[in-house]
Design a protein around this nucleic acid. Structure first.
Length: 554
RNA sequence: GCGCCAGUAGCUCAGAUGGAUAGAGCAACGGACUUCUAAUCCGUAGGUCGAGGGUUCAAAUCCUUCCUGGCGCGCCA
């Protein structure tokens, strides 16, 4: 809708230049916004004020000239007013708003999709938790965010792959192996002080028990190093399977699981290091090899290969990101915990070093989740192994509430997650507020069916019956859905969809309370039924985009 | 010390490309169920947008200084 109007303005501008009524010959970015106040129209443009300096004319005068030139034939533009210092306020015709309803019915599940992304290949990498323990609530937020970003990008016309990067190569895997091995020894009757730098959680004992069940005494009889390696691999696989299970319960599936170890096995890390050395981006100092990331905005250079010959985690990441682009992605999105933000400049530097634009790598930082229960903070400590797992939270509050809560805030602001509130089935709980709107439409449909009124199909209603202000307001909100999704995609901000949902649900609830859909008058009933089913479609599309279900009854 | 992020109503937070009188939810107060689900709605009240300076016709938004909070500054991962 906005694009159509913008197009009309551009044409008017060109016509003015041709006719000589305006002369600056520039076509600036045409600012169009939805004004905060209804009396300022459906859209407002600041174009006249932007041109004022160049034209050396009063903004209001420019606005007059433009309005005279505007093509009204397409029937989109109803009334146009000049207001304030030179705003042009556009009031679109009702016909044009109700055309949105036909768009929605026609597009159905596709309504909201756009071609903004032009099919560009994007990879979204998220969660990527080390396979050394179960997912906790912080991972949950990253999971919900990454998945929603991916979905929103898909809907905006990008071609998206979801990837999980498995950090299975570093010495944390060694620690995992040793932790399990030591618990295994305990089971076999050895007494010891379990080291503080090992993983403390109860799940380590469970894994040790499994090792004992499957392998019996065998692990006692092989060299310790091999035993640890076995335990690491055994535990890593089990934990990863558990992570996959948790994520599926959360409604998330990855297209690809990518192992860091495989980078080593295929020589990618070596090749990556060699490549940046060939490009002259490195130097040796004190026996180590350094990447000149400070040439590209990082505050210091970073070690790729340590003086003992071992590569750093950074080296893996250079190889990994290089390999991502080798796979043909136009853009790569990484979802990280906000505590890794210091890592961003060096990875941007890597992009530049590899000859990519820094914007081709987008990093979304996800802030901490503050877990509360009835306003009281829930104590968590990774070191002692006392943390609330994602699985526990999903079991307690349900997938829908969990997903919704994780997305309610901008990802880079901290999030209070109150378990009691998330469970509450009341107006305090925004999840139910939105879902309830959907269920209500479904309920209306059931009642309509009882009265033998079918939901009208495309073109079957008389828009003249939709004359209420609240109905127009609904149509306006519905029309904004595609641009909301596209905006959320290019800004990597899925929370915008949440706010859209809340606004739509609020407008619907208000309408519902004030007016009956099923009335004495058949044609009015049918027209309203058509409208509220458009609301239902958009609610459902938006909820599914976020991984939240759209229930038919509650 | 340096860097990144944040500071908006009592609380939790929105405010896309700078726009007109800064919004929502919760909490507070007052109302609405013989009507398609009250998990809802309607109304009232609540603000020096951390502080100062600057750019602009126009600043919560951009620049700058300062204050406060969080995080990060390894040949760790």
């Amino acid at each position: 809708m906005k694009d159509r109007l913008r197009h009309q303005i551009r044409q008017a501008l060109e016509t003015c230049y041709r006719a000589g009524t305006l002369h600056s010959e520039i076509i600036p970015e045409i600012g169009l916004e939805v004004p905060a106040r209804a009396e300022h129209g459906d859209f407002a443009s600041n174009i006249a004020m932007v041109l004022a300096r160049e034209e050396k004319k009063a903004p209001r005068r420019i606005a007059e000239i433009l309005i005279e030139t505007l093509n009204r034939e397409e029937g989109i533009i109803g009334k146009v007013e000049i207001a304030g210092p030179g705003f042009i306020n556009f009031f679109l015709t009702e016909r044009c708003w109700y055309g949105v309803l036909d768009d929605i019915v026609q597009s159905g599940v596709s309504y909201g999709r756009s071609r903004t992304g032009e099919g560009k290949k994007v990879q979204v990498e998220f969660v990527s938790a080390n396979p050394t323990g179960p997912l906790h609530i912080g991972h949950g937020r990253g999971a919900a965010t990454g998945d929603a970003v991916a979905s929103v990008l898909e809907a905006a016309g990008f071609s998206v792959q979801r990837e999980y990067y498995i950090n299975d190569a570093g010495n944390q895997m060694e620690t995992l192996g040793r932790s399990i091995f030591l618990r295994y020894l305990e089971l076999m009757g050895e007494t010891m002080n379990f080291p503080a730098d090992c993983y403390q959680g109860e799940y380590i004992r469970d894994l040790a028990r499994e090792v004992a069940e499957v392998e019996g005494q065998r692990i006692l009889e092989i060299p310790e190093e091999a035993a640890i390696r076995f335990c690491a691999s055994f535990g890593g696989k089990r934990i990863l399977a558990g992570i996959d299970e948790d994520l599926r319960a959360f409604g998330i599936r990855f297209d690809n699981w990518y192992s860091e170890q495989s980078l080593f096995d295929r020589g990618e890390v070596e090749r990556g290091v060699a490549l940046v050395r060939e490009k002259g981006l490195c130097y040796e100092k004190e026996g180590a090899i350094w990447f000149r990331t400070s040439d590209y905005g990082d505050d210091k250079d970073r070690v790729l290969v340590r003086s003992n010959g071992a590569t750093t985690y950074f080296a893996s990441d250079v190889a990994y990101h290089k390999e991502k682009f080798d796979r043909g992605f136009d853009m790569v999105v990484d979802v990280w915990g906000a505590d890794h933000h210091g890592y961003v400049p060096r990875m941007k530097a890597v992009m530049a070093g590899l000859g990519r634009r820094p914007e081709d790598l987008q990093v979304i930082l996800v802030q901490l989740v503050n877990l509360l229960r009835g306003g009281q903070q829930v104590a968590m400590s990774t070191r002692s192994g006392e943390f609330v797992t994602l699985q526990e939270v999903i079991e307690e509050v349900g997938k829908d509430a969990c997903r919704f809560f994780f997305l309610m805030r901008r990802s880079d602001s901290q999030l209070d997650f109150d378990l009691e509130l998330a469970k509450q089935q009341s107006s305090d709980n925004p999840v139910y507020y939105v879902q309830y709107a959907h269920a209500r439409v479904c309920s209306i449909n059931r009642n309509a069916a009882e009265q033998k009124i079918a939901v009208p199909e495309l073109g079957e209603i008389d828009f003249g019956r939709l004359a209420l202000e609240e109905e127009l307001a609904l149509a306006r909100i519905l029309s904004r859905f595609p641009e909301t999704v596209a905006g959320a995609a290019v800004a990597f901000e899925p929370h915008r969809v949440i706010f859209f949902l809340q606004e739509l649900a609020a407008q619907f609830h208000s309408y519902y309370n004030r007016h009956r859909v099923l009335t004495e008058d058949m044609e009015t009933s049918r027209a309203r039924l058509y409208l509220v089913n458009c609301v239902r479609i958009v609610l459902e599309n938006a909820l599914l985009l976020l991984g939240v279900s759209a229930p038919e009854q509650m």
